[in-house]
Amino acid sequence: MQTSPNIRLLVRGIPTAHAEALRSGGPDAHGQAPLRAAAHGLGNPCRHCLNLIAEGDTKLILAYRPFAHAQPYAETGPIFLHVAGCERYEADALPAWFAHLAPALVRGYDAKDWIVYETGRVLPGHELADACRAILAREDVAYVHIRSKFNCFQCRVERG
């Protein structure tokens, strides 16, 4: 896959309204209230601010489906959130810690939220930005999702 350096990225955490509803005890993608647990280790990223949750801090654990409607390609998986409010990540670059995802999954979706199969890749975190640019260079791709090696949603990437 060739890189497309002239494609600007817009990287976003999950929408603030959704994060706040979950923090208030609203149902997750499986209709359950988020669970609370202490963060252990370095693998606890908040999917709203895209910062790592500090060791020992309380986090929310919940099922998340990053799609407006259930449909065959609407994957659901576990994510973490800070218990307290935080600022939504919206930037033209991936957070620096994404370089340490080993490996990560990246794939493009069309305007109907269906996977564009030829775009799917498993690669080291330091290659994610270039892969996103190459995928977003395709006219049939509306946006990209980055997921962990465990298929946990990390963020959405659009054309900036």
Rank of each mutant, 00 (worst) to 15 (best):
Q2W: 10
Q2F: 12
I7N: 01
L9M: 10
V11K: 03
T16C: 01
A17Q: 14
L22V: 06
R23C: 07
G25L: 06
A29K: 01
Q32P: 00
Q32N: 15
A33V: 07
A37L: 12
A37P: 07
A38K: 15
L42A: 11
G43V: 06
G43I: 06
P45A: 14
R47I: 10
H48S: 14
L50Q: 05
L50I: 09
L50M: 06
N51L: 02
L52A: 09
L52N: 09
I53Q: 05
I53H: 06
E55S: 14
E55C: 11
E55W: 07
G56T: 06
K59I: 03
L60R: 14
I61S: 10
L62C: 09
A63G: 06
Y64G: 10
P66T: 04
F67C: 07
F67R: 10
F67L: 10
F67E: 05
A70Q: 12
Q71I: 07
Y73L: 04
P78F: 13
P78H: 08
I79N: 05
H82Q: 08
G85L: 07
R88I: 09
Y89T: 07
A91S: 15
A91K: 12
D92H: 15
W97I: 00
A99M: 05
L101N: 08
P103L: 13
L105S: 05
G108T: 04
Y109W: 09
K112I: 01
D113P: 08
D113K: 05
W114H: 13
W114S: 07
V116R: 07
Y117H: 14
Y117F: 10
Y117P: 08
T119K: 01
G120A: 13
L123W: 04
H126M: 05
H126Y: 13
H126Q: 06
C132K: 00
R133L: 00
A134N: 06
L136F: 05
R138M: 10
E139C: 05
D140K: 03
D140L: 01
Y143P: 00
Y143K: 12
H145D: 00
S148N: 04
F150R: 12
N151T: 11
F153R: 02
F153W: 13
F153K: 01
Q154T: 04
G160W: 02
G160Y: 00
